[in-house]
């Protein structure tokens, strides 16, 4: 199973009728079992690209091939839960085939046990994100898409959730694509880091990380990060802008 992406151009038309390029040219491929991380500045077209890859937007130039009947698990940038359904119902509605044992395990890892019967309106952003994650994993996806799952959470919470995501990703072989603008998250979670330019998005670098995820401690992470910075252009001040 393999995802092949070759988007040559994607434009949006503004209300005033003028066109602006959002994606300039992006091509890469991901195999099952691989975690690809797209890193790029805010507004460079990452979410737009994910919508194309998930088949939600067909209005682009280029080609995307993903396994025909691939089940998709999508964690959108906003949680996108059904406000009128409980946490548990939200997950079950998206994943009607998931059994109780599977759900229990998921709720356990994501620390949602106490919130099964709450409505989304009663949850903090961190909890709502966890529900969105539970929903995406509950469908046992072949293709998992995560759009900035750690953004706007405080540092401690983000670190915890990052570890939870790492655990879940480790537990299942699938194509995983994660979007972030945080290099630290990218290096801790990814097998490959794809750096994107500001809008219109182009690939600046496509860098594999060879150290297995489980053995990456703080020291290794810092080393890999420094290594990536060096390999891009050796100028850390420029990279800080990413």
């Amino acid at each position: 199973m393999r995802l092949e992406v070759d988007i040559t151009s994607k434009k949006f038309e503004s209300a005033a009728g003028e066109q602006h390029d959002v994606i300039g040219g992006v091509s890469f491929a991901l195999d099952a079992g691989e975690v690809g991380v797209l890193v790029g500045p805010s507004g460079c077209g990452k979410s737009t690209m994910l919508r194309i890859l998930a088949g939600l937007d067909h209005d682009f130039q280029g080609r995307v091939s993903r396994p025909v009947s691939a089940r998709i698990g999508f964690v959108f940038q906003e949680p996108r839960l059904l406000p009128w359904r409980s946490v548990e119902e939200n997950v079950r509605i998206a994943a009607p085939l998931a059994d109780e044992a599977k759900l229990s395990a998921l709720f356990d890892i994501l620390e949602l046990k106490a919130h099964r019967n709450h409505f989304p309106g009663e949850l903090s952003l961190g909890l709502a994100r966890r529900v969105a994650l539970a929903r995406a994993f509950a469908v046992e996806p072949d293709f998992l898409i995560l759009d900035e799952p750690l953004a706007s959470l405080d540092v401690a919470l983000a670190a915890r959730l990052r570890d939870e995501i790492a655990t879940l990703v480790e537990g299942r072989s699938m194509i995983t694509l994660l979007v972030t603008h945080d290099m630290d998250d990218a290096v801790r979670l990814g097998d490959r880091v794809i750096l994107l330019s500001p809008r219109p998005a182009r690939i600046l670098a496509d860098l594999p990380i060879r150290t297995p995820r489980s053995t990456r401690g703080d020291a290794e992470t810092a080393a890999i990060k420094a290594d990536i910075m060096r390999r891009i252009n050796g100028d850390p001040t420029k990279q800080a802008a990413l």
Partner: peptide, 12 residues
Amino acid sequence: AALDEMATVFAM
């Protein structure tokens, strides 16, 4: 529209 996309992606 956001919930509509969600329903589509999860093949409801």
